[in-house]
Design a protein around this nucleic acid. Structure first.
Lengths: 178, 178
DNA sequence: ACAAATTGTCAACACTTGTTGACTATGAGG
DNA sequence: CCTCATAGTCAACAAGTGTTGACAATTTGT
């Protein structure tokens, strides 16, 4: 970690804190301190707090090596986004980022638009609006119950049981006929 | 609204702002200003910011006239909690409150504990941990997709179609066998 | 080696935050 | 009427916010 330059260090810790605690609940001094760097360098490298946050969104939903063509391919990638975390196990996932930031007054619309443009849109094109919506609802509900409310009875993510529960509901979403 | 005393006015606007924007994202001055009241009166009447927030949680999950005894009764009440808002249509719902506050560092555990103690607990007792969890996941997913991400394809709440979509997924959650 | 651009350091800025204390109504009980 | 607790007003506080400018250090290009 010491072999990163300042920009990378800031970006790493910014993503960690912004994604898990929400944009408005994190101060630049907290991030800079965690990165072992002066606060002023944020404005220098990223133009300000908002610029730093936007930089953390780079490739947030970029989970395809190649754009998906079939339903199964897209669904598989989607499930992967929600069950795995981007780098290590301790890093917050893109789903957590959505839950903590989509309500924020300053970056809420930014985050929602990004999600819709980079993800929900392709879901809609492939599945149609109703099934795409139910699909997203199911998969987000799982994340909320697990990450946000920490409801008992939901298996640990990345476990086989978790996938089984999730796929059961996904199947239900697909069997919906408006 | 002018026939309310200061304490009631503060409570009303505090609930509105705390529940829709999250505890840390709202300042006492915003609330006091919206209520047309001096800031210092918050500490006078509620002891401080945290006391005011806790006061807004009074009866947040209190949607039963009488405690539910059957599954259908409990499910009905649960669906009502998620599709209706407590007072008027413009007031934030308890679900919104959970989504905006359960991640907060200062009040997150408070809110999560309250939800579990006052709601998920009785769900678990009646349905067992797995089905209770899936049930909560389904119903929360709906709220996230609608309120937080504003996904297209999900019908407006309190519409018949919304209930139909929701009940379809709920039925799926109940048909799960671990 | 020199000049120039980039990167880092430090202190200050204007502003907002929650909270407190002194002071002034206001109104009820003796 | 006087007293006194409750309610409201106002100004200040220490702490924390994002951002900026002046300066030093370091790296880069020639």
């Amino acid at each position: 970690m010491s072999e990163m330059n300042t920009k990378e260090k800031l970006l790493l810790h910014a993503r960690r804190r912004f994604w898990t605690n929400g944009y408005s609940n994190v101060s630049l001094r907290q991030i800079a301190s965690a990165a072992g760097v002066d606060v002023a360098l944020v404005s220098r490298h990223f133009g300000g707090k908002l610029g730093l946050f936007e930089a953390t969104l780079e490739g947030a939903f970029n989970i395809f090596e190649t754009p998906p063509t079939s339903e199964t391919e897209l669904i598989e990638a989607f499930v992967r986004l929600f069950t795995e975390t981007p780098r290590t196990q301790t890093e917050p996932s893109a789903v957590t980022m959505l839950l903590t930031n989509s309500f924020d007054e300053e970056v809420g619309s930014l985050v929602r638009d990004l999600y819709d443009r980079q993800f929900q849109q392709s879901l809609r094109d492939l599945l149609g609006p109703e099934r795409a919506a139910l699909f997203a609802a199911v998969v987000f509900g799982f994340s909320v119950a697990e990450k946000s409310l920490q409801v008992d009875g939901i298996a640990a993510p990345s476990s086989a049981e978790y996938r089984r529960q999730l796929e059961h509901l996904i199947h239900a979403a697909f069997s919906y006929s408006g």
